[in-house]
Design a protein around this nucleic acid. Structure first.
Lengths: 369, 369
DNA sequence: ACTGTGTAGGCAAACGTTTGTCTTACGTCA
DNA sequence: TGACGTAAGACAAACGTTTGCCTACACAGT
């Protein structure tokens, strides 16, 4: 804004009462950011009038010349209103809270990036906090964030347990909670894409890696998979389903469960992983026992994280429009903050099948050992 | 040290789940959250006294019985102090700003996760903002964050241009700016590790991928590499150095520059990439012309992002202790906020060579074509 | 001369805290 | 009995805004 004033404005020159008479109180002179009151003193007006001008309050008659004087002074003293004071007075902070399990995770941060884009565009700022799936933090952080002035919350992949006193949008939230809008993937469609893709390639013996219990998507995704399999006529062998347990976001996630799967010596020609990370771990486990992907076993991931396209072989996966989902979440929250009453209770984003190199025709011999 | 008032009233925990037990609200609390004034009215005291009790202000004599009454009332009405009002009054917000180029990037978010850990532990919250390396945003966001009450700033991989009026810690910052503490990798050591490793494997013709000009580490890293090469006696062929340009964080970053490198038909047996992402892209470009890694060409990355360990082949790289660096940055900032005067002007974190599968003995024939 | 209508801007009360200073009332001491 | 100390808490002034209401004028119309 005020980039032009090369010589620093000396507020002390025009407000003699502090700087000149009391040189020892250094913190009070020029260093202190200008306030409405200082401006008003300087201009011979009262703070209210200055505020009115600077905010262009409609319905107030202030002559053009005065308005210019005020704006000049604001520029000269590099005035920035104290948002703290303003928030206190107006009871609006233009701040929301973003609650996320883990900052260092491709899924979460992709969503956050969408959230951030929309919020910044609309002039909102956000606090972020991560809880690492610890229940007491999930309980406590919303309160703290609200205490900090968050007018609403966006929770990513977080199992909320109860209603809150501010509007909430949950990304990858499934539980129906009053006041909570869920933004999630259309899991029925996603499951259909996965199972149909594998069925068309001739797979009949399919192993599944289920998500961790604490991950919000786990339950729904699995339910949809079983439903889709039933529709399409693929039998689900429960001896071929394994379950992720660890709370990490690296391929190490998928490695051990596929090892145990392999040790069971069951026949399968494809693995449906809970997400891309576990798919990558799965592929490594397969290769470590000299199984080729996709010639011997097809693997399909979920999420389409950035590593997926550059993994070797390139990972076939379901893309979630995570950035869009983040933007959508932010948009819905802001609408609700602006008093929109008939906001959607749920928003389902469309998944997309990204066919790359880790899926191929079923090998009739299945995995060899 | 924790953020001053450890006696922050933890009231909600004591209050029984309100939804179930109280269908009807008590007379006093109506709509708004309880304030000091309401409490004072209820107790027949004045707000100041209530404040004094709740904050355990030393040197005030309030009888024990009154203190209990006050605390009971606070619990009863689920009182939480307005941090907005408190901040306005005390001129402390316990909030900092975190400025980052991109939210969806392994490097940045790993650092953020360290920052977040430390800040939350100390009772601070933070605003985050991302600028995508746009100079006007880099100029504007610090102001906005300070306007929001940030008492200090942590900038990750951000080329600040000038001093700010609050304490700043720059992660991967190189420029010496008054008031800015730099937390960075010991690049001299890192460069030494890289060059020595390749030299020991017999590499003499080494190609280099330099970082983008806007990336804060680019310059220093390159300078250190050339210094180390000189020390160790490796000649740097400028026809074998290419430069990243694009502002993306996917392997696509490194792919095209290695393509051009290959088109030049120069002889080389190893590539030193600016970071892991570009290394992965480089490997793909090599494989696409049927060059094997590491048999024909060795590749070494930088950062040790999560994908590095699970890439195929596993990536040899330099690990930056990013999480630690984030924590360190936060710690230094908080120390400065608490008035520590002799904080370090610079902090260098130790790199570590992670030898995996993408580097091997130099192939005397070099790359074939 | 009186009323009405604008115009320009001041006044003061919020918003919810914190903190230094003041006032009571009571007891103790000499 | 007066001086004094002290406990218990009230008072008021901030912090920097915003906003509803008010005043003081000037001018025009009857």
């Amino acid at each position: 804004m005020a980039a032009s004033n090369s010589n620093e404005p000396r507020l002390a020159e025009v407000v003699p009462k502090q700087a000149v008479t009391k040189p020892k109180r250094k913190s009070l002179d020029g260093e202190r950011p200008a306030s409405l009151k200082m401006l008003a003193d300087y201009l011979g007006l009262c703070p209210a009038t200055v505020s009115v001008v600077l905010n262009n309050v409609p319905g107030r008659s202030i002559p053009h010349e005065t308005r210019e004087r005020v704006r000049d002074a604001a520029r000269k003293f590099n005035y920035h209103p104290s948002l703290l004071a303003r928030s206190l007075r107006k009871k609006r902070t233009f701040t929301v809270g973003v609650l996320v399990p883990e900052l260092n995770d491709g899924y979460h941060t992709m969503v956050m990036s969408g959230i951030g884009d929309h919020l910044m565009r609309e002039g909102y700022f956000y606090f972020s906090a991560h809880h690492r799936h610890k229940p007491d933090m999930i309980e406590e952080y919303p309160r703290l964030l609200m205490g900090r002035g968050a007018e609403g919350l966006i929770c990513i992949d977080t199992n909320l347990t109860h209603e809150l006193s501010v509007p909430v949008v949950a990304v990858a939230g499934h539980k129906k909670i009053p006041g909570v809008t869920n933004v999630l993937l259309d899991h029925r469609r996603a499951a259909d894409l996965i199972v149909r893709h594998l069925a068309e390639l001739g797979h009949k013996h399919i192993a599944f890696i289920k998500g961790q219990p604490f991950s919000a998507d786990s339950r729904t995704r699995w339910d949809c998979i079983t439903a889709a399999a039933k529709d399409i006529g693929i039998a689900i062998n429960h001896e071929l389903t394994v379950q992720l347990e660890r709370d990490i976001s690296s391929p190490e996630l998928g490695y051990p469960v596929v090892q145990t799967l392999l040790q069971s010596h069951k026949h399968f020609t494809a693995i449906v992983a809970f997400n891309d990370m576990s798919a990558i771990g799965a592929i490594r486990a397969l290769r470590d026992v000299n199984l080729r992907v996709p010639e011997d076993v097809s693997v399909i991931g979920f999420d389409d994280i950035q590593a997926a396209a550059y993994h070797n072989p390139r990972l076939t996966t379901i893309r979630q429009p995570l950035h869009d989902m983040g933007e959508t979440a932010a948009r819905i929250l802001l609408q609700r903050l602006q008093g929109f009453k008939d906001y959607p209770q749920e928003f389902a984003a469309p998944p997309e099948l990204i066919t790359r190199e880790t899926t191929g025709p079923a090998n009739p011999r299945g995995r060899r050992r």
